Computed example of a mutant assay.
Amino acid sequence: MTITFGGAFSSDAIWMLAQAQLAAVDRAADPADARWGLWEEPAEDVLLSVQDFLATPLLAKLGDVPDTQVVVLGTFGSKPGGATGLKGVARGGAEEDLTHGTADEIRAWRAANPGARFVVTVRVTAGEDMNWPGYLVEILVHELAAHAEPFADFLLAEDFIPGSGSLDTEKEQHRHLHAGNPRYRLLGACYLEQFPQEGNGPEFCSRMLMDTRARPTLPPGLWLTAARLTGRPGAGQEETA
């Protein structure tokens, strides 16, 4: 339906720059992206290849989910990080937090509330001493790729064929991020290539390496770039989950 950015993203120059940079690197996958080792040939029983999955830019996809609003909010705080939630809004205005609901639970709520809509809320928090574009972009990419897009995929599948959507838990989504979330890898690769300057690429990589909970990874073909930008040998290398 729509995607909007608010809070610090609409009032602070650095946060507005981070939003603009994200929009600048958000694109569909291109065959040339294979140079990063972004994907391998899919198995015969995989219906959707990585290239197919990344055929639509992320922001356009999130803004085109039926009966769903995506709201991205930026706030200053002492504890940096991000959080993504899903809220169901019944026709009469009553709201229900569905963030930790299973696919069956969300499906049942939707069936019980015809005409309802959904709101996906993405919150990005960072202190003023961490106010660098690349730092903010990395949190954005984590939240949008690992958590908001799975909500969007579930709701899109349910709208197309009721009962067909699937949804992983947050822990499983973090596991996918560490193993190599395709969208995170594409956006991260594009960002490092387009914005390698101080405060951009180096801070993206630094924030990525600070995320010990999810331990996101870049494409294997980019770990040398990450190491050079951060001055930390091995930065961006894949680990064994």
Rank of each mutant, 00 (worst) to 15 (best):
A103K: 09
T56S: 08
L218K: 05
L224H: 11
C205M: 11
E138V: 10
T102E: 08
L186D: 03
C190T: 01
L222T: 11
V122N: 07
L47G: 01
M130L: 15
K171E: 13
D97G: 10
R107I: 00
G82D: 08
P66N: 08
A24F: 04
L22Q: 10
T230I: 09
R185E: 14
Q21G: 02
C190F: 01
R27A: 14
L38N: 04
F76Y: 15
L224N: 04
A13F: 04
I139Y: 01
A32N: 10
T84C: 15
D67E: 15
R107C: 00
F195S: 05
L155W: 05
A126D: 07
L186C: 06
F154Q: 02
D211C: 07
G85W: 05
G165W: 05
H147N: 05
A179G: 03
C190P: 00
D97R: 04
W39D: 07
D129Q: 12
V65S: 06
S10D: 13
H178D: 02
R215K: 13
F195H: 14
D153C: 02
E198I: 05
G82S: 11
L48E: 15
D45P: 00
N131H: 15
S78I: 11
E239W: 06
T217V: 15
A226H: 07
I139M: 11
L136H: 02
F154A: 05
P80S: 10
D26W: 07
S164R: 11
R35V: 07
E158M: 11
I3G: 02
E158A: 10
N181I: 00
T125W: 02
E44L: 11
F53I: 01
H100T: 09
L98S: 01
R215P: 00
A235F: 02
L136R: 01
T125D: 10
A55E: 13
H176I: 15
H142G: 03
L155S: 04
Q51L: 14
E44H: 09
C190M: 11
P162T: 11
P57E: 06
F9H: 09
Q173V: 04
G163I: 12
I106Y: 00
Q19N: 09
A23R: 15
K87G: 00
D104A: 15
D159M: 00
T169E: 08
E128T: 14
T102C: 01
S166F: 09
A226S: 08
L73K: 15
P202H: 08
G134R: 08
